[in-house]
Design a protein around this nucleic acid. Structure first.
Length: 278
DNA sequence: ACTGTTACCTGATTGC
DNA sequence: TGCAATCAGGTAACAG
C-alpha cells in the first residue's frame, strides 16, 4: 500500500484525530522493527501534545510539544488503525491512546516499517531524510531541470532511477509504472536520456499521477477511516500496474497494440505498453 | 562512485 | 484439500 499518496492519506487521517490531543498512554510492543528503536521511546511520547503532521517522501513526522517529532515509515505492510481494536494482532507494534479516548495502532506484519524520534528543529538532518530528493508535489522544487540534473549520467533504466529516493522522494513500484505510462516513456529507457522534452513531460506526469491518487484517497475523515478502523486504504484503479495482458487504455487494440506487458527490472515487476511508451 | 543483487519479514496467492 | 513455491506497495547491506 504505502507509496506517497497512501502515506499522505494516512497522515491526513491521523492528523484529523490526533492533532491537538494529548498522548495519555504509549505502548511499544516490540522494538525490533526495520531499525532498532531508541530506548524509552514510549515513555518519551507519553504526556505530549500532538502539534501537527508533516510528510517527507514516504515518511510521516508527528510533531510533539517539547521539540521532538516521531518519524514513521510504513514499510511494505504498515497500517495505522484507529479505534478500539476489535481484533488484536500480534503485529501491532505501537499503540497510542489520547486524552479523548482515541486509540491508534501501528500494525506492520513484515516489520519493514520503522519509528524514530528526532528533534523537530533537525528533522531534515535525520539520516533517513537527509539524502531524499525533491518533493514531487512541490512545483518549485521538482522541475524538469532538477530531474534532468539528477538523471544525468545514470546508466540505469528510468524505472530503476525513479525508485531511487535520492532522485525524487515518494515514488514506489506502482506509481513509477503509472507515471511513466502517463508520460509515454518506456521504463527501459536509459535514465540519462530522459532530459529536455521528455523530462518536461515526466515531471507533470509524476505530479498528476500522485495528485489523482491522493484525490482518490478521499477528502474527509469519513473517507480516510475504513469500517475496520484502518486509515488510508482506498480503491484505486491503475492504468497499467497489475494489468498484464489487458488492453492498453490508450491504444486502438490489436493488431496495432498487443496490450500491457510485464517485465522484471531490478527484481521488481514493471508494467507498460510497448507501443505507447518509447 | 556507481549498479545490480540479495536479505530482511510475514501473509496471500498460485500451482501441483 | 494440502502443501510448497512464488510473489508483494521498501530499503539498505553487500559485491563487483
Amino acid at each position: 500500500m504505502p507509496e506517497l499518496p497512501e502515506v499522505e492519506t494516512v497522515m491526513r487521517g491521523l492528523a484529523a484525530v490526533l492533532q491537538g490531543r494529548v498522548i495519555r498512554r504509549a505502548e511499544l510492543r516490540r522494538p525490533d522493527l526495520r531499525w532498532h528503536l531508541p530506548a524509552g521511546l514510549a515513555a518519551r511520547l507519553q504526556g505530549r501534545v500532538v502539534l501537527g503532521f508533516r510528510r517527507r517522501g514516504k515518511y510521516m513526522l508527528m510533531r510533539l510539544a517539547g521539540g521532538d517529532s516521531l518519524l514513521l515509515h510504513l514499510g511494505m505492510s504498515g497500517r495505522m488503525v484507529i479505534g478500539p481494536a476489535v481484533v488484536t494482532t500480534p503485529h501491532e507494534h505501537l499503540v497510542l491512546e489520547t486524552d479523548d479516548g482515541t486509540r491508534v495502532g501501528f500494525v506492520d506484519p513484515r516489520r519493514f516499517g520503522s519509528l524514530d524520534l528526532v528533534a523537530t528543529a533537525a528533522e531534515d538532518a535525520h539520516p533517513r531524510l537527509a539524502d531524499l530528493g525533491p518533493e514531487p508535489l512541490d512545483a518549485a522544487a521538482f522541475t524538469p531541470a532538477v530531474l534532468s540534473a539528477a538523471l544525468a549520467g545514470k546508466r540505469t533504466p528510468i524505472k530503476a532511477a525513479l525508485l531511487d529516493q535520492r532522485v525524487v522522494a515518494g515514488l514506489g513500484n506502482i506509481y513509477v509504472c503509472e507515471a511513466l505510462f502517463r508520460a509515454g516513456i518506456s521504463p527501459r529507457r536509459l535514465a540519462a536520456s530522459v532530459a529536455g522534452a521528455r523530462a518536461a513531460r515526466l515531471v507533470p506526469a509524476i505530479r498528476e499521477t500522485l495528485q489523482a491518487a491522493i484525490a482518490a484517497g478521499g477528502s474527509s475523515l469519513r473517507d480516510y477511516v475504513q469500517p475496520s478502523g484502518e486509515l488510508g486504504y482506498f480503491q484505486h484503479t491503475w492504468a497499467v500496474y497489475g494489468r498484464e495482458g489487458e488492453p492498453c487504455p490508450d491504444c486502438p487494440g490489436p493488431p496495432a497494440c498487443r496490450g500491457i506487458v510485464r517485465i522484471t527490472q531490478a527484481g521488481r515487476s514493471t508494467f507498460y505498453c510497448p507501443r505507447r511508451q518509447r
